[in-house]
C-alpha cells in the first residue's frame, strides 16, 4: 500500500502530541509500518506546532511535505491557512474554528486574516470546519479538542470504531478517560452531520 500521510497542526500547548499517539497506535494495530514526527523544545511554547504521522507497508521519511497530506487536522484557523500547501490535491482538512491571535497580531504588526474557512474552501480543497472547542467543552474540557478532531477523522478512515476506542482507552490517563470518550463520540456525530 502506498504510504498515507496525516498532519496535525496547532498552537504549542494544545495537545497535539496525544492526538498523534492515538493515530500511531491505531495504524500500528492494523499491522502497518508507522512513523510519527513530533516537535519538542522551544517551538512548544505557544508557537506553531506540527506533527506528522505516516503509515503504509514501509515508511521511510517521517516528515510530510507540500502536496502530500491525505488528512490535516488543525486545532486553529490561522494554522489551517498556514498548512494548506501541505494538503494533497484530493486530501481533506478537518479544522477546529478556534482562533488564537499570534504575537504579531497582538502587537499590531500583522492582521489576522478574515473568513479563513471560506477562503480555504474557495481553493477547491475539501474542508470540514467544526467548532471542536465547543464540543470539547460540552464533553467536559477544552483540552479534549484533540479527541473531538480524532472522532471526526475516524469517520473518514477505513478502520473500525473499536480500534479507535481501544487506542483512546490505552493512551488517555484514567481520570480523563470518560471525558475523552465523550469527546470522541461528539466528534463522530459532528462528522455525520457534515456528510
Amino acid at each position: 500500500m502506498e504510504t498515507k500521510s496525516i498532519m496535525i497542526v496547532g498552537v504549542g500547548g494544545q495537545g497535539s502530541l496525544l492526538a498523534s499517539r492515538i493515530l500511531g497506535h491505531v495504524f500500528l494495530s492494523q499491522g502497518y509500518d508507522v512513523k510519527v514526527s513530533e516537535v519538542h523544545g522551544m517551538s512548544q511554547r505557544g508557537g506553531s506546532v506540527v506533527t506528522y504521522i505516516k503509515y503504509g507497508d514501509q515508511v521511510y521519511s517521517p516528515i510530510v511535505e507540500q502536496g502530500e497530506a491525505d488528512f490535516i487536522l488543525s486545532f486553529e484557523q490561522l494554522e489551517a491557512a498556514r498548512c494548506l500547501p501541505y494538503l494533497k490535491q484530493d486530501g481533506t482538512m478537518i479544522l477546529s474554528t478556534q482562533q488564537i491571535d499570534p504575537m504579531p497580531v497582538i502587537t499590531g504588526a500583522a492582521q489576522y486574516p478574515e473568513q479563513i474557512v471560506e477562503k480555504l474552501q474557495q481553493t477547491g480543497a475539501n474542508i470540514i470546519a467544526v467548532d471542536a472547542l465547543a464540543l470539547a467543552q460540552q464533553a467536559g474540557s477544552a483540552k479534549a479538542t484533540n479527541t473531538v478532531l480524532i472522532g471526526i477523522l475516524s469517520q473518514k478512515m477505513p478502520f473500525p470504531q473499536e480500534e479507535w476506542e481501544k487506542a483512546i482507552q490505552e493512551l488517555v490517563p484514567e481520570r480523563f478517560l470518560t471525558l475523552n470518550q465523550k469527546a470522541f463520540a461528539l466528534g463522530r456525530e459532528a462528522a455525520d452531520r457534515e456528510e
Binding site: V11, G12, G13, M42, S43, Q44, R45, G46, G47, S48, E65, Q66, G67, E68, L78, E79, A81, R82, L84, P85, Y86, L87, Q89, P102, M103, P104, V105, A109, A110, Q111, Y112, P113, K119, L120, Q122, T123, G124, A125
Partner: peptide, 19 residues
C-alpha cells in the same frame, strides 16, 4: 516537483512566546 495549493493571502507567523 509536487503540486500544492496556496492560501490567497499572507499568513502571520506564530513565533514561540512565554506562556
Amino acid at each position: 516537483t509536487t503540486p500544492y495549493r496556496t492560501f490567497p493571502e499572507s499568513v502571520p507567523v506564530r513565533p514561540p512566546v512565554m506562556c
